[in-house]
Amino acid sequence: MPAFRVPVAPSLLEWAVERSGRPAEDIHHRFPALAAWERGTRHPTFNQLEDFAQATYTPFGSFFLDEPPVDEVPIPDFRTIGNVLVERPSPDLLESIFICEQRQEWYRNHSLASGAEVLPFVGSASVESPVVETATLIRDTLQFNAEERANDASWSDALRRLIDTAEEAGILVMISGIVGNNTHRGLNPEEFRGFALSDPLAPLIFVNGTDTKAAQIFTLVHEACHIWLGQTALSDAAMERPGGNETELWCNRVAAEVLVPLASIRRSYRNSPTSDELDRLAKIYKVSTLVILKRIFDAGLLGWDSYRLTYRDELSRVMAILGRKSQTSGGNYYFTHPLRVSRRFAKAVINDTYTGRTLHRDAFRLLGTRKHETFVKLGQQVGVV
């Protein structure tokens, strides 16, 4: 019996290849008949189309449409490039948001069933709220003051402590540089740095783990500002960008004040923005040297012309340092995976599964695991025995 073939509009196939972000030659190499499919002289089999959908990260049902759909970010998008909104989201971004929305929905229902109370800080601020006052409230809630950060041995240690204290406050924090559990699909920090999904019972912050540790710290605090606004948002969380909408500017100002209070930088700064001085202050506050430089300017300790020249030189130095650093990946799965899915979330799912309220198959899907042994070890890692 001949294989069943599926007629697909050539424009959909071309759209899927372009949308995937993968090199077209790689996809054509994997699917030798793709050129014939695009010409309409031959159609893929059902199994071939399923494989093609998986290879291009395309929802299978899209191939039964008459023309390509328009991908839209399902949450408010505040990202800009040159103050222009980013138009086309990648499949990696869309899937990351979808996965987090599923996890948040489960945790919200779990919280309701457990009789949890709403978190008072969610939606407690507005863009008219005083920056210093709001920053103080956020810093206290996150237990992330400058004095303790100065004692952290590294940016990684400070970030890990911030994740833990944010989760203690009730926020689900997910730090990941990949889509779901797929190590072959790395996230691009130039597309997005993080997003917040606000909810009075289950606020969630996702941070792009491919960014530097200093940038991740700033992004996490920036997204926390959106939670304080009670606002779901996709952000680039780039403090050095001068433009942007009112909400993003407010979140940047508050996040900067949380991390590098103006009163503190005025006491700490030694009157010359040399590389050594910027490095010294960045180590104290556990932020990037570019954030330090911006705060020196905000504090009125550096003129505009000097700031622009110094910023240009410092940016070049930072990019050169990043270029020399090798990118590392992997690590201990049982250490990194709870950070990807949120230790608070993983503990709740595993506990709920052991009580019988959540099926193992649903828990595996939510946690991105496949084997029972992995599930058990993850439970041990997050304190469920």
Rank of each mutant, 00 (worst) to 15 (best):
E38W: 03
F46H: 12
N182D: 15
Q102Y: 01
H337A: 03
D152Q: 11
I292Y: 05
P200G: 02
R361Q: 13
P200M: 02
H184A: 09
N109E: 15
G40C: 00
V385E: 15
P74N: 10
G243V: 07
R280W: 04
L302I: 05
V17K: 08
W155T: 00
E101C: 06
Q143S: 11
M174R: 08
A150S: 13
R149V: 00
G379C: 13
F335W: 06
A263Q: 13
K371L: 13
R370Q: 13
A224D: 07
Q54I: 09
L278F: 04
Y57E: 14
E223K: 05
A53N: 09
S114W: 07
D313P: 00
P7M: 05
E101H: 04
R5T: 11
G243P: 01
V86M: 10
G177K: 01
P32T: 01
R185M: 04
F375I: 12
T58C: 15
P76L: 09
H29R: 14
P7R: 06
T232S: 15
A346G: 13
L367D: 14
S90F: 02
F64C: 02
K283F: 00
P59I: 12
R30S: 09
L366A: 10
V260R: 03
L34N: 05
G303F: 07
R30E: 13
E246I: 11
D199H: 12
H226W: 11
W106N: 03
S126A: 12
L197R: 02
F63T: 04
L112K: 15
A282S: 15
V207S: 05
L187N: 01
V17D: 08
G170F: 12
A202G: 07
R160K: 12
I171G: 07
W155S: 00
T328D: 11
E246P: 05
S126I: 09
A346W: 09
R79H: 07
S329K: 13
P2I: 06
P76G: 06
S90D: 05
L293V: 06
E101P: 00
L259A: 10
L201G: 04
N151L: 11
P273S: 04
D362C: 05
V207I: 09
W250Y: 09
T247V: 13
P10M: 01
L367E: 14
A33I: 00
H337R: 13
V179S: 00
E223C: 10
T247W: 01
I265V: 13
Q216G: 06
E257C: 10
W37L: 01
V287G: 00
F98L: 10
N47G: 06
F52H: 05
